[in-house]
Design a protein around this nucleic acid. Structure first.
Lengths: 135, 135
DNA sequence: AAAACTGTAACAAATTTTATTATATATAGA
DNA sequence: TCTATATATAATAAAATTTGTTACAGTTTT
């Protein structure tokens, strides 16, 4: 997982929500984030895949939202930037001869699934519009 | 953050909960996890710092729980292995001249704090005993 | 005293994340 | 039509983080 993915995507969308009528250049966005423009474009590619933004190439080009910020929930951003939230797994496969080793990953997954439900319930209730109005 | 920390610590505690009367050696635990014993000892050092286990050095030594698994909540494990849950921040400091850049990290932090409350509420309700009974 | 442990620090290897470079393509406007 | 300014994306390099290993000192049992 790219650790900054949620934060970067949220930052991009907040900027776009602030200027919904402009095509905003990735260089400008990168300047606000202070990261490389290519990383911004990679996240924009993901946003496009999820039909939240469109881009225009060429001079005066850039990216803008294609749906109102009020219709975009933080849950959508979450789902777009994490496969799924997790507290992680140990890197190696645990010992299948051990009753605990054999099942630990299944049981952790079940726990993480429960936690995802709690997270998503919270995020559902917040729109990008609300989030960006804080700025 | 060590990505496998929660999983490793939970695995260790589950083993200890299964054999509450034995001192269990880090080599044995490492065999179940299939990781290096030194990593196990590092996590055990953390568990000791939080007064959940004690170790005995020397021959026949090892580690065991010092409180009943029913009295240890998954929340305690969570708090011990994460400073705090977060969906991450962009690596570089955002541009302070930009209204969004200036505030994004504060606003993300506030959002993450809300989510932590939801997570912790869920984890509070699950004890290590319940978790380890699944095995 | 020897064997079987824990406790740590220091270092190395592997993996993941982030940054950069390079190249192709599109569009606006002089 | 030419030039400047954009996007798009792949390939590679650099940096950071995580995991693994080694080494060695200390403890306890037999």
């Amino acid at each position: 997982m790219i650790t900054g993915k949620f934060a970067i995507t949220t930052h991009i969308l907040t900027l776009l929500a602030k200027f919904p009528d402009e095509y905003m250049a990735s260089d400008y966005i990168a300047g606000s984030l202070n990261i490389h423009p290519v990383l911004v474009r990679k996240e924009i590619a993901n946003l496009k895949k999820h039909h939240l933004v469109e881009s225009k190439e060429g001079k005066n080009g850039g990216t803008k939202l294609i749906k109102p910020a009020a219709m975009i929930s933080m849950e959508a951003i979450f789902n777009m930037t994490f496969e799924k939230m997790s507290f992680g797994f140990s890197k190696n496969d645990p010992n299948p001869e051990c009753p605990v080793g054999k099942q630990i990953n299944n049981n952790l997954t079940a726990l993480y699934d429960d936690i995802n439900i709690a997270i998503v319930n919270k995020l559902k209730s917040i729109s990008l519009e609300e989030f960006s109005e804080q700025f």
